[in-house]
């Protein structure tokens, strides 16, 4: 637990110097590039924090990832290419929501199943002929 606590404290709350370089890189982006940068860094998880994206985190690891995102954007890579770059490097784990592929489809289909099954059941219950409770 101690290790966990230390890592939590270190990663979430002790902001390292949010690199002057990164700040400078961020200011160099055009408006469109900045939107893309925010959009992509919202989809990548902060590897050392809990529950937040690299965009919301100032941990050193997140800064490195953001810096890499900016480099890719400046190199004129498209969003899918940049996402693929991070997927190759870190695996699907880096994403904040399950990818719509393979077994992870379950994460998206189960809520739909809940919805359709529930709606059908409620519909029959309320508007079925007998309407028995």
């Amino acid at each position: 637990m101690k290790v966990f606590l230390c890592s939590l404290v270190l990663t979430l709350f002790v902001y390292g110097d949010p690199g002057a370089d990164l700040l400078q890189q961020e200011t160099q982006l055009t408006e469109n590039q900045a939107t893309l940068y925010q959009h992509i860094s919202d989809q990548l998880r902060c590897p050392t924090c809990t529950g937040i994206s690299v965009r919301q985190s100032e941990s050193l690891f997140s800064q490195q990832i953001r810096s890499a995102v900016i480099e890719q954007i400046i190199a004129k890579k498209s969003e899918p290419e940049i996402m693929q770059f991070f997927l190759d490097r870190y695996g699907q784990w880096i994403l904040r929501e399950p990818p719509k592929q393979g077994l992870h489809w379950i994460a998206w289909l189960v809520p739909l199943f809940f919805f359709s099954f529930g709606a059908l059941w409620v519909g029959r219950f309320l508007f079925g002929k007998k309407g028995s409770p």
């Binding site: 919202d42 989809q43 998880r45 529950g51 937040i52 994206s53 699907q92 784990w93 904040r96 929501e97 399950p98 992870h104 994460a107």
Partner: peptide, 8 residues
């Protein structure tokens, strides 16, 4: 292990 976060 895949931790789902806010966007989902």
């Amino acid at each position: 292990r895949f931790n789902i976060q806010a966007p989902y």
